[in-house]
Structure formats: C-alpha cells, structure tokens
Design a protein around this nucleic acid. Structure first.
Lengths: 210, 210
DNA sequence: TAGATTGTTAATCGATTAACAATC
DNA sequence: TAGATTGTTAATCGATTAACAATC
C-alpha cells in the first residue's frame, strides 16, 4: 500500500462502495458501470470514477467494472483482506455490545481480549472472552499481535489510557470516549462520538421544525 | 431557527465547539478568543470565526467570546436547550447499551420506550423501561411526543422499519443498522455505521504499516 | 464497426485560510 | 489612547462535476 495523501473524504466513501458492491455480488451481478452505481448510491458517476482512480484503473472501457474484482480490490485497499486483532478497554454495556456484535468478526476484526479496572468483573466472560485486569494489558498486547485498541471507558480516564496503550505499542485506537485523545502523529485514531452524532441530528431536526 | 443552508461540515464542528466551551466553563474561564480556542482545538482561528458568524456575531472586538454565553448559544443552535423524546427499536446488546448510557439523558435526550419483535423479552426492563412489542409503537409515538427513533436492528429489517416509523410521524432517525435508509426528504437520518468507521481505521493503519 | 464507458483533463463550485478595517 | 480581537471581504486551496478523447 503506497497510495498516499488520499483525502479522508475519499476514504470515507470506500466502505460504502464496498457495501454496495457486496450487495451486487450477492445478487449475482457480474458488472456495473459508474453510471448505474451512481444511480444506486445517489452520487455522481464522475465522483465514483475519480475516487476509484486514486487507487488504480479497475474498470474497462465499454464494459464498466467487474463487481467481484472491484469488491476485492476495495477490500484490499481497506486492509480487510487481512485479519485484525483487537482488544477492548472498558467492559461496560457498550464494550460488551461491541464484543457481541458478530459483523466485525465476519470482516476480520477479531476481539482477543477485554480489560477493565473493576475487580468485581474480572473473570466474567463476554462471548467466551474473559475480562482481565488492566495490569495484564501490556503483556497481552505484546503476546497477541494486537493492532487496534477499542476505548469504551469514561472520558476522564480515556486520555491517560490512550497514552498508556501507545506506550505499549498500539498503533490504532477506536475511540468511543467523548474526548479528543492526545497521541503522537502516526498513531491512528478513529472517533465515534455518539453524543455529537445525536446533536447533529437534533440540529437538523430543529431546523425544519415548527 | 431560520439559519438555512449551512453546510454539514460546519454543523459537524458545532458539537466539538460545544464540548470545548463546556470544559472552559467548568474550569471557570470567563472569556476566550478565537485564537486561544483554535490553539486548543487545533484548527484555525479564522475557521472558528467563520463558523460562528454563520449564526450571529457572538463575539466582541478586543475581548473575544464570553464562554458561558457562547456555550449557551451553541446549545440553542444545536437544539439541546429543549428535551427530545426518543424510542429505541431493537432491544439487543447495542440498544440496551445506548439506553443505559446516561450522558444522552444529561443532554436532554430521553429514552421513553423500547420496542422489539421478540416475545421472549417483552416486559424485560432496561433501566426501568419495559420492552414492548412492535405493534405498540404506533400508538406510543402518537401519545408520547416522540421526536427521534433509534434503529438498532439487523440491516434486513431496518429499511422497512424506517418506512413504518415515518408513516407513524417520526421525523428523525438515528440509524445504527448497516444499510442506507430510504426515507422521504424532510426526514432526518443520522447514520452511525460502526463497521465503516472500523474500516476507515483499518485503511489508515494499513497505510503506514510494514 | 458502432456503442458504451472508462480514465483523465479542464471547469466549476465550495470550503478554508489570510488579511484587514472596524471597534471595543 | 493603544492593544486586542472581532466580523467580513478577498485570496487560496481542494473537492466535485463536466467534458471528451481513448479504447474496449
């Protein structure tokens, strides 16, 4: 992977392309034109072609794109042709819900460990994974080839925990805590700020009310 | 609220402004300049001033912005000066986790009802709210002044359910199902596509690996 | 071959940044 | 008053859309 400097706007659309191509594949569709795909996805054919051509010429003139091939190529670009090992920090409701959600595993995101700092739940099992104390996380990362840490802890401890995880070699954090993490450049953070999302909905709702 | 045609890029930044202003308020800070705020938030002072001026001149020359005042104004813009009543469709792990998460309620997002189509869990209580059968949702919406429906159901039933909810008068949907809903214009949808988010992280991780 | 559709260049549109007069 | 900082206009940058020659 040497495609550099591709805007996050483009990258943000890739999973959606992937999803639509997966649907077409499941329907047994063999090829699709940028025009047809754009009709389905409600964006312009031009944008689709521009987006894809950041990564290579996957299409054929007069034919369009081979669905199965393009699906696979986007999968590779997204790095989900390989498995990823995850740990989750914070075994609360949300943490447990994520571990129990099977679709991540189907796409190669495998939960390997769950950690918490509440002794009352040490040993508790969530989908066959035992909750371990935070003290065990350092060795666990080293010994289990962990790529991604999922932070489902209260915001007050999140910033400090992120720094700790980075010091143990974690390169990517999926952050559900409602706070901006402060990590060195090179460490990838993807925020899921649920309250922010809900506020956006509230704004758009207020706009057309009354 | 008559501020129209403001780009979603701007709106997407409002909750973050709100969060930083809340922090400053809690620290007892009285005023802040766009410059100071931009240093904290790692964006340009120019952008902050442009963003805010979409909604009005909240600052004062030579002084900056009054923290408490700006915090309140942004709260109003986001529509969280009022309470919102929500129902949740799908009482699985994620649905339960959301209901149990107290921070939504603290911001005026109140879960009023939980619905599912699995008879085995009818009557089960999640934070004192009883899970009701889907058949009850129509009347519930009518009688309880519900603004927002939260969809935490498998993707296969989501599209149909969304249409049903719209027919009952729901104006906003917070969609956790991994599918694009098909609703009339005017109905607000905010998607939380967790798998897409994780894929973005995977992409960015792959980029700098090896 | 004729028709379809790509990849890519050029044109447009929109968002961000810079600059500065206004003014507290 | 002098200094600080806004609100706003102008300049720049980047992303999206349009157009079309290349070619399957």
């Amino acid at each position: 992977m040497v495609e550099k400097d591709i805007s996050q706007a483009v990258i943000g659309r890739l999973p959606r392309y992937f999803r639509y191509l997966g649907m077409l594949k499941d329907e047994g569709v063999e090829r699709v034109s940028s025009r047809d795909l754009s009709d389905m996805m409600r964006l312009t054919a031009s944008q689709i072609r521009q987006d894809l051509n950041h990564f290579g010429g996957f299409g054929h003139q007069g034919y369009g794109y081979n669905v199965e091939n393009l699906y696979e190529e986007i999968g590779k670009i997204l790095g989900i042709d390989k498995e990823h090992n995850l740990i989750i920090i914070g075994a609360g409701n949300l943490g447990q819900a994520l571990v129990n959600y099977m679709n991540f595993e189907r796409r190669g995101f495998i939960f390997k460990g769950i950690f918490d700092n509440d002794p009352k739940i040490y040993g508790m099992k969530v989908r066959n994974i035992e909750v371990k104390p935070m003290e065990a996380v350092k060795d666990f990362i080293k010994n289990n080839n962990i790529d991604i840490a999922v932070l489902t802890v209260p915001k007050d401890s999140a910033v400090e925990l992120a720094e700790e995880l980075v010091s143990y070699g974690i390169k990517a954090i999926w952050n559900f805590a409602h706070v901006d993490l402060n990590v060195p450049s090179g460490i990838k953070v993807e925020n899921v700020h649920l309250l922010d999302s809900l506020m956006k909905l509230s704004y758009n709702l207020a706009l057309h009310e009354e």
